[in-house]
């Protein structure tokens, strides 16, 4: 079989003073390299990348760590689907099994073609700048995450032991705490491609996770002065009550489809919008020219 990898040198002149003496120049256009490999049964796309690097080209850049689908390092575009390289079985791709079906968007429609019976096509995760080859700059992804202030602010009056939590509340929270922040959803969301300032599915799901945490401070001003400085808004949901937040989603549900952990950001967003609308039914700041999406929040289910 053949592994076809998009190679790109990104912008290595920015931010650092770098010696770009070897390999691709920063200004050369991206290219596709093809590696002839004979993977053993059970090989994953990540193991193909290791083989290509170890045998042929040490400069092939991709991120990795756990190789067990829990660290979130290796999200990339594989046969035009954002997914974890370590979790993607080569046999399944070449065997012509029906692949994941996504609502189309430019990053997966355009570009290089490949022969799905003999080749696996690997490209960097869309919607984030390429640093080199398959390594993308996640700075923006993390910035949007921090924008939703993802840290628990528990109610005042410290408890000595644990906060009591209903098992059902834990089950609801787990749907969102299972997120591994791999960014696959960000690369799969058509809105993220159109609107670079959209907070994106992962950050919104995290925001919702804290919103529904029963340990969170509720009601009027239980926070210390310092906490009030740290957290701009008493209400979690208000943090994303803006055109680039909850209201930008159009419920394509690609986020949930590609999530390696089954997290449903679309549900979180739907619930948040319903709650905001029921709280204050004045018109919401939808992005210009947009409707409420295909059926709106009520059809956000899976």
């Amino acid at each position: 079989m053949r592994l076809k990898v998009r190679r790109e040198n990104g912008d290595c002149t920015a931010a650092h003073s770098v010696r770009c003496s070897e390999g691709l120049s920063p200004f050369s256009p991206p290219r596709y390299d093809t590696f002839e490999l004979s993977p053993p049964p059970g090989a994953t796309v990540l193991s193909l990348l290791f083989e290509a690097r170890d045998r042929f080209d040490d400069s092939l850049a991709f991120r990795y760590s756990c190789r067990g689908a829990v660290c979130g390092s290796c999200a990339m575009l594989i046969n035009k689907v954002p997914r974890l390289a370590c979790r993607t079985q080569v046999d399944a791709l070449l065997g012509g099994q029906k692949d994941v079906s996504l609502k189309p968007y430019p990053a997966i429609e355009d570009g290089e073609s490949w022969n799905p019976v003999e080749e696996v096509l690997v490209e960097p995760l869309p919607h984030l700048p390429v640093q080199k080859d398959l390594a993308v700059d996640m700075t923006k992804f993390y910035r949007f995450l921090q924008a939703v202030q993802p840290v628990l602010r528990p109610a005042a009056g410290a408890v000595e032991r644990e906060y009591r939590m209903e098992p059902s509340a834990v089950r609801e929270l787990e749907r969102y705490t299972n997120c591994i922040l791999c960014g696959a959803c960000y690369g799969a969301c058509p809105v993220c491609g159109e609107n670079p300032e959209y907070l994106g599915p992962a950050a919104l799901a995290q925001l919702y996770r804290f919103h529904i945490d029963p340990r969170e401070a509720r009601g009027p001003a239980p926070l210390s002065a310092e906490e009030n400085r740290t957290f701009a808004h008493p209400s979690r949901l208000a943090l994303a009550d803006q055109a680039n937040g909850w209201w930008a989603c159009r419920f394509y549900t690609n986020c949930h489809t590609v999530c390696p952990k089954g997290v449903p950001p679309n549900l979180a967003i739907g619930h948040a919008r319903q709650e905001l609308e029921s709280r204050s039914p004045h018109p919401r700041p939808l992005p210009e020219g947009e409707g409420r999406g295909e059926g709106g929040p009520t059809s956000a289910g899976t």
């Binding site: 770098v18 770009c20 690097r53 170890d54 042929f56 040490d58 400069s59 080859d133």
Partner: peptide, 15 residues
């Protein structure tokens, strides 16, 4: 020895 002298993201060098 390495198969690339590239300095940026040379994970072969790290290895």
């Amino acid at each position: 020895g390495l198969s690339s002298r590239e300095t940026r993201y040379n994970f072969g060098l790290v290895a």
